[in-house]
Amino acid sequence: MPSKLAISYQQVTKSFGRLKAVDDVSLDVAEGEFLAIVGGSGSGKTTLLRLANRLIEADAGTITVAGEDVRNVDPVALRRRIGYVFQSGGLFPHLSVADNIGITPKLLGEPPAAIATRVDELLDLVQLDRAEHRDRLPEALSGGQRQRVGVARALAAKPRIVLMDEPFGALDPLTRDALGDDYRSLHRSLGLTTVMITHDMTEAILLADRIAVMRGGKLLAQGTPAELSNSGDAYVLELLRTPRRQVERLNALLPASGAA
């Protein structure tokens, strides 16, 4: 049912000069769904994500968010109600953790006391110690902490939709795993709709309900991991082979019941 769609792309095209970054893509994201868009660099996945909150404007086709054509919505208002997590955090280096997290509520004109309360809630939510981190500058945080602040900032104005641009790509594997799990549970408990970009198929399989695969601006396939493995497309199958091989090798190398 269309009313249940959080985001919908209909035959969307976007070119930069002669390069077709997004080429006639149609894709629906249901409410409450966690969709991962997987593809290599230059596949158009980031462009596709940014079209949703009008950081980039489409050349052709229609994009709707919560049933509304984004062209009819003020882009600034649109962005304030969609959470966005940037690749390397995108935190403002001159603002404290609290000011970074509270930026969108502040732009919406919420009273400072309400923002302070909300910031503390969010610090709890992303599992950062309130007193210790609130007044720090981003440069005093580790990569994982920064990305937690980035997630908290995206959630500050209580959006229904969160867009994530390779949010965990630059983190070490342990941090990445923990953060992914933590976000996945936030997604569920808050009833969010999440679209996450990643070049890592393993991460996509572990976190997302559904996966869309992009290459050269085209949407090659979409579906659950199981549906994808029935795809006839060689590139999709190639992408799925990596996690499979990892699992096989890990199974062979690790004893069935570990010390953990």
């Binding site: 909150n53 600034v76 690749q87 390397s88 995108g90 403002f92 732009l107």
Partner: peptide
């Protein structure tokens, strides 16, 4: 990236 982020948070 920071100017993009400013836009992205709704400035």
């Amino acid at each position: 990236a920071l100017i993009e982020a400013a836009k992205g948070v709704g400035m």
